[in-house]
Simulated assay, not measured.
Amino acid sequence: MHKTLTSLAATAALALIAGAAPTQTQAQTRNCGDHAQVVERLASGYGESRQSIGMGADNTVVEVFASLETGTWTITVTAPGGPTCLVASGQAYQNLYEDLPNTDQGA
């Protein structure tokens, strides 16, 4: 149950931030940096690798990094030509491959 709630929280956070391109002011107040440096830090410091990637509003790139061994996860947002910012992190990450629910109303 706890793992499912954590996954739901991560999904909700991703949905909320997908449209939030980091501005210069936000970049100064968040943990932001060069994309290659952020990826290296997540890999070397936390054992996290990219698990998913998608495009958000205003062509932002939203990425989820996670360690399948430790369960830590981090969500980043990268603005076009801008910094990569850490926007959420947590524990108990798990990959889910769920089928769509059956929405047929019957015959």
Rank of each mutant, 00 (worst) to 15 (best):
T60Q: 06
T60C: 10
T11C: 01
A9G: 04
A27K: 04
P101H: 15
V87Q: 12
Y46M: 08
F65I: 01
L5G: 00
A21M: 13
A107H: 05
S49G: 12
G106N: 05
V38R: 09
A13P: 00
H2C: 10
A20G: 06
A12G: 03
A88S: 13
T29Q: 15
L96K: 12
A107N: 11
L100P: 00
K3N: 10
A10S: 06
C32E: 07
D104Y: 13
P22Q: 03
Q51H: 09
T84H: 04
Q26S: 10
T103Y: 06
G81M: 12
R50G: 01
L96F: 14
Y46Q: 13
V64M: 05
G82D: 08
P83R: 05
Q37E: 15
N31T: 06
A36L: 07
G33W: 12
L16D: 11
P83C: 00
A20Y: 01
E48G: 03
G90Q: 04
D104P: 00
V87N: 05
E48I: 08
G71K: 03
G81S: 11
S67P: 02
D99P: 11
D99V: 14
G90P: 01
C85G: 03
T4H: 15
E69Q: 14
H35Y: 12
P80W: 15
S44V: 07
C85L: 10
T6F: 06
Q105R: 13
Q28D: 14
Y97S: 15
T11S: 06
N31E: 08
Q24K: 14
E40C: 00
T4I: 14
I75Q: 01
Q91L: 02
Q105I: 14
Q51R: 15
E63P: 01
G81T: 11
H2K: 13
D99C: 07
S44W: 00
Y97W: 10
Q94W: 00
L14D: 00
Q24C: 01
G81F: 12
T78C: 01
T76I: 03
Y46D: 06
M1Q: 11
T78K: 08
C85D: 03
M55P: 00
G81L: 12
T23P: 05
G54S: 15
Q26R: 08
V77M: 02
L86K: 07
A66L: 03
G54H: 01
Q24L: 11
A79Y: 04
V38I: 15
D34M: 02
A13I: 04
L86P: 00
S67V: 10
Q94A: 15
S89E: 12
T25P: 09
A20H: 07
M1E: 10
A10D: 02
Y97G: 13
A57I: 09
G56H: 05
P101R: 14
V77T: 04
C32H: 09
C85Q: 07
